[in-house]
Amino acid sequence: MAVISYREALRAAMREELKRDDKVVIMGEEVAQFNGAYKVTEGLLKEFGPKRIVDTPISEAGFIGLGIGASMLGIRPVMELMFWSFSYVAFDQIVNNAGNIRYMSGGLINCPIVIRGPANGGTNVGATHSHTPEAILASHPGIKVVCPATPYDAKGLMKAAIRDNDPVYVMENTILYNDKGEVPDEDYIVPLGVADVKRVGTDLTIVAHGRAVITSLKAAEILEKEHGVSVEVVDLRSIRPLDEETILASVRKTHRALLVEENKPFCGVDAQVAYLIQSKAFDELDAPIHRVSSIDAPQIYCKRMEDLQMPNVERVVAEALKVLA
């Protein structure tokens, strides 16, 4: 088992799928000659050539729509958005076209497209480049959304996404790109809709996704060492489909739940998770469900304040203690 970075894991997934299926095409701004704005696609042009690795103009509605159209005829495009924040200028293509065409055609058409790129705050770039649209997009039936937190999941989910016959939107995180972890050498996928218990515990369940998982794991360490609390951390990995059973099984064990996400609170992913828990495990709860989200404002530029705006270890520990009180 090799230890590689989250970035290398994503690249390995794309390399392997490019080799496995000649219908796979990588497309996006700066993905080829420039080697990727975040170097995720570094070296792929050299290895696979310009037919498979395609630089696009800055024209998200155009090239994302083009990828969706090509996928209807059986091409399997993996489209990079330099930031998921830029998806907003391609929203009609991403939602109306990719998300609806199977339904509106009564099942005659499907769109095996992957759209990937970073969707995170915390990088001191202001509100327009810090959006986390997983909840917005996952609220549309027809669309799938995954948010890997580790190199292992990044590779496995990306490979599953490329093989999936529906539109799958992979939301990465620039702050995680250099994180390292063990990744098997042999072929594997992480199926969509399977959560992962990243830490086993008995007193409190923390449900998180994306980088909030890493924050929650650090908080869990402190809670154990400094407060003697055993915390279980459930990583959703996939937002839609959602692994409801793993969430419920953990809550049935610990009887307390804290939900952590980097979204703003209103209609965040955890609003849905909280509804799920109260609906299907109400009698199991010994305390109200609490949430830690980003403070409800457009993303602030000032780095010192942005670090406080987003869920951090201190805020997670403090909120966990309230649930446990």
Binding site: R102, Y103, S105, G106, G107, N110, P112, P141, G142, K144, A160, A161, R163, D164, N165, D166, I189, P191, L192, G193, V194, A195, S238, R240, P241, L242, D243, E244, E245, Q272, S279
Partner: peptide, 24 residues
Amino acid sequence: TKHIYWEEDNRGPKTTSRGTIIFE
């Protein structure tokens, strides 16, 4: 709730999706 996802209309051991994808 049919014809929303190819993988749901064809769900089986070899398809890539698990979990809940159509919500109550």
